[in-house]
Amino acid sequence: MPGMNRPALDLSQDAAALTAQLVDFPSVSGDEKGLADAVETALRGLPHLSVERHGNTVVARTALGRAERVVLAGHIDTVPIAGNVPSRLEDGVLHGCGTSDMKSGVAVQLRIAATVPEPNRDLTFVFYDCEEVEAERNGLRRLAAERPEWLAADFAVLLEPSDGLVEGGCQGTLRVEVRLPGVRAHSARSWLGENAIHAAAPVLARLAEYTPRTVVIDGLEYREGLNAVRIEGGVAGNVIPDACTVTVNFRFAPDRSEEEALAHVREVLDGWETVLTDTSPGALPGLSHPVAAAFVEATGSVPRAKYGWTDVARFSALGVPAVNYGPGDPNLAHKRDEHVAVAAVLECEKHLREWLTA
């Protein structure tokens, strides 16, 4: 917890044991400084790397003059702890907050940084903060805006949980608020008012009737979704509410731009006021790029589409082909019983090491 003295990160232990040490080092979004300090200290002890820091984002690079440069990136923050720290190892499975999303991936990054001093491609390691919160706080977003040269590369691997499979691209995501007006009145004389919460019923009905698209891109199938994720309204137990807001989230395939996605949402919700509150673009798979194709072959996995938004989109916007590839199970992310198999962590480290030393 904040203020506690913690042992230095031991990069000589295997990736699974290092995952446990990282999990036992809480770093909920906004409170990553201690872990960023520990990562920076550990990396500065490696003579083959140059290390830079931007806020609570740490970047380390090799400079071997190789023909290609690859970024290995991962976020060091987690969602709030749910009684699942410290870590616990049982029957070859490591339990704890961040085991899947994504301290196991970060452990793999650190192991490669420490134990592959002469890779066959130059490497950039990025450990960034605030991925699990609103986009404007994201450390990789700030880095892309203020130090884009630190992210220059031919290819990027984001070690987000993907079950040890290559997941190409990602969905885009946006949120709008549907704002519904009413007229306030005493609930005993409700005919004198207009109930704004009741006005949400046709909005919810339209969303329930919506048929989402499925689209195939580069052989990968992306499914879209348009859903109400929050509803707010009400004044008091004896008042007809004069305002209600329905928050709607659209997860869209990467063949749509953010502008096209917003236009589609407004078309579906025509007749109601919609206010855009958050948006992030998707990323096309880019698996036809030679470096990406070589990586897929090296991992021996059959690629699939990424369901959810990840920071591969930021690399895509910079013109860097990127994939998701990490040891965790994405279905366990953010769960109270989050866990990762030790064998999966070690297998991910093995594949990356072989690819970078072949």
Rank of each mutant, 00 (worst) to 15 (best):
L287Y: 11
W191R: 14
S288P: 00
G139T: 05
E146P: 07
S257C: 04
G168Q: 04
A114M: 05
E40R: 13
E258F: 00
L143W: 00
F295Q: 11
L262M: 01
A36S: 12
I76Q: 05
G168F: 04
E260Q: 15
V71K: 09
V216T: 15
F155N: 06
R147N: 12
C97A: 14
A188E: 10
L49N: 10
V215C: 01
A63W: 04
L192R: 13
S104N: 03
H289A: 15
R6G: 03
A188V: 10
V235M: 08
D218K: 08
T299L: 09
D14E: 06
V239I: 15
V108K: 10
V216M: 00
E40P: 12
G234K: 06
A313D: 07
L22D: 07
L18P: 11
L269C: 02
G74W: 07
K33H: 14
L22S: 02
P281G: 09
P161F: 06
V265C: 01
E131P: 12
I231E: 03
H264Y: 09
W309A: 06
A341Q: 12
A243V: 07
G319T: 05
R111A: 09
Y210N: 05
G83M: 08
L332D: 14
G300W: 00
G182E: 01
R53S: 10
T19C: 15
A294S: 14
F155Y: 15
Y307I: 02
G193N: 01
H351L: 13
E177S: 13
V340D: 03
L284R: 08
A8G: 12
S162M: 09
R175M: 10
